[in-house]
Design a protein around this nucleic acid. Sequence first.
DNA 1: ACCTGAACACCGTTCAAGT
DNA 2: ACCTGAACACCGTTCAAGT
Lengths: 224, 224
Amino acid sequence: MSPPPAPRKTVGRPPRFSRQEVVDTARRLVDAEGVDRLTMRRLAAEIGSTPMALYHHVRNKEELLVLLLDDYAGRTLRRRELPADPRERVLAAAEAIHRALADCPWIVEVLTADDLMATSALWYVEQIVDGLIACGLTPEQAVHGYRSLWYYTAGEIVVRATAARRRADSDRATYREQVFAGLDPAELPRLARLGARWADLTAEDTYPAGLRALLTGLLARGAG
Amino acid sequence: MSPPPAPRKTVGRPPRFSRQEVVDTARRLVDAEGVDRLTMRRLAAEIGSTPMALYHHVRNKEELLVLLLDDYAGRTLRRRELPADPRERVLAAAEAIHRALADCPWIVEVLTADDLMATSALWYVEQIVDGLIACGLTPEQAVHGYRSLWYYTAGEIVVRATAARRRADSDRATYREQVFAGLDPAELPRLARLGARWADLTAEDTYPAGLRALLTGLLARGAG
DNA sequence: ACCTGAACACCGTTCAAGT
DNA sequence: ACCTGAACACCGTTCAAGT
């Protein structure tokens, strides 16, 4: 009903900086010093302004982080050629999303609701849903399948990132080794027998294999 | 080589409170007011002490959170009867872990490295690994399979929790609806056609179905 | 050994006022 | 409309001293 608001001209004071400049500066700050150092005060100083000026461009810090992630996804998730075979297309699209997130170490702090991905990575979501339908799933099954793939992918990212963060803390690694070394074989025979190998086995990158297994299962269900 | 340190008796000042009291009080605080309100200062006030006294019982706030999660897992993940059939046993164990975490809304802040679970939920991990081996996987495949199930489970929890947190923000839901309503059918035909149904479809609980699909795929790979 | 008080070096955000 | 300054109500953690 109502038309888009007409561009107001020269009402009030002209802006000293834009929302995009806020996001760009935040990105530079995060890349250079890590997400912990991204504070409203620090960012304002970097821009050469005051903390409160930022609140004219973003609602609050959470919105800034969402903007930052969208910006990141928009620039790393460029469309690329995907395989024609639908199954391979689903795998390639999921792996593209996974790779983009894995290369973004601050992602976990920002987190990962599914509607966050949806704004910037919709093209890849489309490829996954379409590929699943081409493999024989109904549209409903395809959406549910996409969600399962997304849970698996997001989980791998989160677990990987927290594990990496904890690895810095060598005491904790030692503690886990002690736990696994001291397991009672009568109580937990499988884990006790695995013992020290647990650390090596869980250090391997099993994302692609698990992704394929999940897709196999999703298609088996759809077919059955 | 060195024996465990002999229990020192009456050296220095007797403690006013124990580490377990710190954890118990923290749990009460989190249950009553949410994890955001758990600060060292608030907790010290609740205990009737000073912030710095806490640092004699926990190394820092992060250790306190890990302790808290372990405590929670220890009291909710009690062992229960699981099905004899190995496939059903794996599903039941994964669902038990999932349920425990889903009932714990502050879990995402604490996060979720796999060695965290391992200390308190080892019995369930054992059931999963053992069940996978009984289904025909090698021990190595079983550990990798457990990890895939854990990624999927952790991802569902994280996505669910952030989605719930964002649901309070009704602007964002409206925003997503707008995005889906305004999709170009020529660009993203599948998503455009799904349109408003996306919200309903993604609101459904698909954890159990995806879990079964993943397990099916893991066992198919193991067998093939 | 355990606890306290004071301090350091910060946060995100609101409010009232300026241009 | 946009920006500033000052303030509010907090943080986690260190340090030096007390018992």
